[in-house]
């Protein structure tokens, strides 16, 4: 029994199985919302209301021919998608989904917030490497843009995630979530940080307005230009999983986590992540892609100062409370 729980934790919930199924569902929700906002249907025919469309897309990609460019570094080229996938799935294990106040998840430890943020920024590095090792002009430009963008959003994101942690007085996701479950009004103090985190998550996921690294009309597929078949499927799935993990992280830090054990926790997880996915979809629909220089200027001129402001607010509230 003592062994069974970690295995279930790793493989079923919130591990691999749940993550993959839920991420395809989230992609469907995102596509459907995006389509309806544009006054069209979105996926319709695969499954009920097209709910299986993301799965069908992945299956189709897995069945496609897998081409490795002659000039590419073949070992790196093939290893990177799997590596990135593993990292993001690892990050998902730290989300406090299966927790009781008394018995937190088996791998949770004080400071896991930082670990999740770190694990989420690794795929960005892998995207860069993927672009660089493809040795295609468009891939290289895409890879360089990935890194340039990283310097834009990473620090505001970290600052925005820190302020609720400062207020809660802990670096542990479970404890932050429990703190806000006990003091729900204090969540309002982090509203600004929440918005900054959502915008930064959009940048991390490389979606409009921040899909600069793989801007289709400019540099074809960016870092993924040379990827096809199975490897591209991995990268696509990776995007969905990253969206789930990112949304889960923001929900755990800002929205009071997922209280109440297994099933109520699951319900809270779905509700809260879908709310964030809705915000991401609305942001995607309402904006146009910006240029890389505009993105950097925006994040340092607006996001970073506002995140610092948020941190100050958190510190002041913390100071006046104690």
């Amino acid at each position: 029994m003592a062994i069974l729980k970690p295995i279930l934790y790793l493989l079923v919930y919130p591990g691999l199985l749940f993550l993959l199924v839920y991420s395809t569902f989230v992609e469907w929700v995102d596509r459907k919302l995006y389509a309806r906002m544009q006054n069209r249907f979105g996926p319709l025919h695969t499954g009920r209301a097209g709910i299986l469309q993301p799965v069908a897309d992945i299956i189709k990609l897995f069945a496609k021919e897998d081409i490795v460019p002659e000039r590419a570094d073949k070992r790196m080229f093939s290893a990177l998608p799997v590596f990135a996938m593993a990292i993001v799935c690892t990050a998902a294990l730290y989300l406090p989904v299966w927790h009781y106040q008394a018995a937190p998840s088996p791998i949770s430890f004080p400071g896991d917030l930082i670990v999740v943020v770190y694990l989420l920024s690794l795929p960005t590095l892998i995207f860069f490497l993927a672009g660089w090792h493809s040795t295609n002009f468009f891939s290289e430009i895409g890879g360089v843009r990935v890194l340039t963008m990283l310097f834009g959003y990473e620090i505001p994101l970290l600052l925005a995630l820190l302020s609720p942690a400062v207020l809660a007085g802990s670096w542990r996701l479970v404890e932050i979530a429990v703190f806000y479950q006990n003091h729900p009004l204090l969540m309002l103090a982090n509203l600004l940080g929440f918005l900054i985190a959502v915008i930064c998550l959009q940048a991390k996921l490389e979606r409009v307005p921040f899909d600069i690294p793989h801007a289709e009309t400019e540099i074809v597929g960016g870092q993924f230009t040379e990827y096809s078949g199975r490897k591209l499927a991995f990268f696509r799935l990776l995007g969905d999983v990253e969206m789930v993990v990112g949304a889960g992280l923001i929900a755990a830090v800002f929205l009071g986590g997922f209280p109440g054990g297994l099933l109520p926790g699951l319900a809270w997880f779905v509700v809260k992540t879908l709310f964030i996915v809705f915000l991401l979809a609305a942001l995607r629909a309402a904006t146009s892609r910006i240029r890389i220089d505009q993105m950097i200027a925006f994040s340092w001129r607006w996001l970073a100062p506002l995140a610092v402001l948020q941190l100050f607010i958190a510190i002041i509230i913390k100071g006046s409370a104690s």
Binding site: M37, Q38, N39, R40, V208, P209, D211, A215, E216, T217, A285, A286, T287, S288, R289
Partner: peptide, 16 residues
């Protein structure tokens, strides 16, 4: 123009 700039919603609405 919307599509080239990555503004897909604008593209969908004008074409509608």
């Amino acid at each position: 123009a919307g599509q080239e700039a990555g503004f897909e919603s604008f593209f969908m609405y004008t074409w509608r």
